[in-house]
């Protein structure tokens, strides 16, 4: 059981980065459907940086920049030029998948170099790693996983306990009111869309550097879209995102487990489970009531000051 849950966390980590990234973006009032594309950009650039420098830190930074670069295109188009967010996000996904295929072509099948993969071996955290049950599940993982814990805690603290976090939520709820109270709406939107993109890039890099350490063009394989659904599922709460990502990560590996236990199920049908459950969850979450559980009110609305 502990082993299974520990594997769930590994499967959850890319989802968690992307979910928290998209959550920040949506808190700024922008629905970015380019998560899949930004993850792919992060995955390929992170991998390429690792290959060229064999430095894990440079690889992580490069992945952040790649994701943020994708998000910058989205931000310029939707914040400054007020383009349609749905279409822009979709285009970013198409662009990102083309980008990853194109940039990744010469390195298809390459392996993550030794020093980088050695950096991402599993290491137990002193003390925490020896807690019964929780230790083996959560604290005998690789550094990248610990980074995701940190991101969740920092984002949760930022959103609910700091002034800029409060301002951000105000921007997402009602850009005109936030503007009237002196918040620099455009700046807030840019900063958080870019940060969100950087986190998506990291999620992609986890896949290409740790999960499947051989470069292949379809490494993200729909996880970006699951992250978009997860944001709804966890009702825009970063702490719940942790549990949500674990649940979905678990669903994606449960088929293999069942086969290993000798239960005869069709792998192809089991592969459907994460997608069907996302649909069910999106339907169920519409029953949730309460202000905390609703999307940011200005989500998807462009803001044009002169039109106020």
């Amino acid at each position: 059981m502990e082993g299974f849950l520990a594997t769930c966390i590994v499967a959850a980590t890319p989802l968690l980065f992307a979910t928290v990234g998209e959550l920040l973006t949506e808190k700024a009032g922008h629905l970015n459907l380019g998560v899949e594309g930004m993850m792919l950009m992060g995955a390929v650039i992170g991998f390429l940086a690792a290959l060229k420098t064999d430095s894990a830190l440079i690889a992580l930074l490069a992945a952040c920049f790649a994701g943020a670069g994708g998000a910058l295109i989205f931000a310029i188009l939707t914040v400054t030029l007020r383009a349609n967010q749905v279409v822009t996000g979709l285009t970013l996904t198409i662009f990102g998948s083309g980008f990853a295929g194109f940039v990744g072509q010469p390195i298809l099948g390459s392996m993550v170099p030794a020093k980088t993969s050695a950096f991402f071996v599993k290491r137990a955290v002193p003390l925490l790693g020896s807690i019964p049950f929780l230790g083996p599940v959560m604290f005998r993982q690789d550094i990248f996983v610990y980074l995701s814990y940190g991101v969740v805690i920092i984002v949760a603290f930022y959103l609910y306990r700091t002034k800029p976090g409060l301002n951000l939520r105000a921007v997402g709820e009602s850009a005109p009111s936030a503007d009237a109270s002196g918040i620099n709406v455009t700046l807030y939107k840019y900063v958080h869309i870019l940060t969100g993109g950087a986190l998506c890039g990291l999620g992609g890099a986890y896949l290409s550097l740790v999960r499947v350490p051989i470069w292949q063009a379809d490494v993200v394989n729909g996880r970006g879209w699951i992250a978009v659904a997860l944001v709804i599922f966890v009702s825009w709460n970063p702490l719940k995102a942790f549990l949500g990502a674990m649940l979905f990560g678990g669903l994606s590996i449960v088929g293999l487990r069942m086969q290993a236990m000798g239960v005869s199920v069709s792998q192809y049908l089991v592969d459907m489970i994460p997608y069907v459950s996302t649909i069910v969850i999106v339907i169920l979450s519409s029953y949730k009531k309460g202000k905390e559980k609703q999307p940011p009110r200005d989500l998807g609305n462009p803001y044009f000051r002169e039109e106020r």
């Binding site: 188009l77 400054t80 030029l81 383009a83 279409v87 822009t88 970013l92 662009f95 980008f99």
Partner: peptide, 23 residues
């Protein structure tokens, strides 16, 4: 010997610019 995904990059770029031009 250029990957066919180049077409995706070109498609994406065209739409980015057209989306931007609508402004």
């Amino acid at each position: 010997n250029v990957p066919s995904t180049v077409a995706n990059v070109v498609q994406g770029t065209i739409l980015f610019f057209v989306l931007g031009s609508e402004f």
